[in-house]
Design a protein around this nucleic acid. Structure first.
Lengths: 204, 204
DNA sequence: ATAATAGTTGACTGTTTAGTAAACTTTGCT
DNA sequence: AGCAAAGTTTACTAAACAGTCAACTATTAT
């Protein structure tokens, strides 16, 4: 019973957009409320702080993204194709953001993680866990690639770490330079890191 | 004539430390002044804003760093050794920071760049230019490596972009995870990206 | 010595911010 | 209808914040 509300969802959407198009530190609770079309009293009815809102928003945003990532990294897809698809997806995604906001926005977890890691422990832990999930997809694709003989023998965990550093570094660069072109050939570097000749893919 | 002052230097040191150990958005002018042991009136005597101070501080910090980088990337050193030295230096540097602050701090330009790129144009441009300088060292080493036959033929500019993405991505990951261990084998990935077998170095 | 220059200080202003509380409104249950 | 749960709103406080200014102090060239 009682009345129903979309305020919570609206606040989560608003905070993500503001953090992503700007930064965590520079977005105020008043701004979030204004963007969400929600009064501050309602904000504090649902959340205790900006940090708490951000944690929930990041979690829910990752949850909806995860379905899509699961499809890209399906075990039915050849391992290297998964990585190719993931790179292509990221490129397209960043193009969409650039079209929508006039800005390449990069990876929300990485940008935010770098900003708050020394300041907000619970937020930092949430981001860490999402990044760990993402790495597991890559690691699993590498492991499958080794099994199928597409990837030279290596430690999948270490290699995944490297691939991810490269991938996230590229997105960061694209954000800082506001240049989406850097990302169009992203997969090339991924395959170099794996010691795989580019173009050795089954189908794309 | 008139009296002499170290306030400007102290303010620049303070802002760099605060941004690096925290973030740009979360460091206030009051904080900077307190850390520097300088009164706010003096701050505004020398600078018009936090942004202006940050621009000057970044420039001067890069200038003193550049001497060291020039040595590492000396044309007298075999090209791949330069990259190895640079990776080793970064690793040691981050270890020092961890020892000093209890935190891996990563690359100041990259963290800050990602935070302010959508918000502060002059700061963004300053960071951009420093990052461009850094890339030129890598690009030049790659070009020399191709000339000496140590690096397979490629477009040095594009490859430098990739190497840098990987390098900066690694530093970012280390910052977010507060784990310096990730960086100990950094050069391995650099050489993979260049299509060079690890251990093909003249001397290190 | 003193006057001009360079830098310092503290007290001040107005604004933005986080956070609170009490009155009010909508909704569903009986 | 009427009551209770769930959510909304407005007006408020106190603190943090950026930025200003006039009076003050140290340095040095002459």
């Amino acid at each position: 019973m009682g009345r129903v509300s979309e305020a919570k969802v609206k606040l989560m959407d608003a905070v993500l957009e503001l953090i992503w198009t700007g930064s965590y530190g520079s977005t105020t609770i008043d701004q979030i409320c204004e963007r969400a079309g929600v009064k501050k009293g309602s904000f504090y009815y649902f959340f205790n702080s900006k940090s708490e809102l951000a944690v929930e928003a990041l979690g829910s945003s990752w949850q909806s993204m995860q379905a899509e990532v699961d499809r890209m990294f399906s075990a039915t897809i050849p391992p290297l194709d998964r990585l190719q698809k993931y790179c292509d997806f990221s490129y397209k995604f960043q193009c969409d953001m650039k079209a929508k906001y006039g800005r390449v926005l990069g990876c929300p977890q990485f940008s935010l993680g770098s900003e708050v890691c020394t300041q907000d422990d619970t937020l930092q832990k949430k981001i860490q866990s999402i990044l760990d999930y993402k790495r597991k997809y890559i690691e699993s694709a590498i492991r499958d690639g080794i099994a199928s003989g597409d990837v030279p023998a290596c430690d999948p965990s270490t290699k995944a770490q490297m691939v991810m550093a490269y991938y996230e570094g590229m997105l960061m660069q694209a954000r800082i330079k506001n240049d989406v072109g850097l990302l169009s050939k992203m997969a090339t570097g991924v395959f170099s890191l794996l010691g795989v000749k580019d173009g050795a893919l089954a189908t794309v």
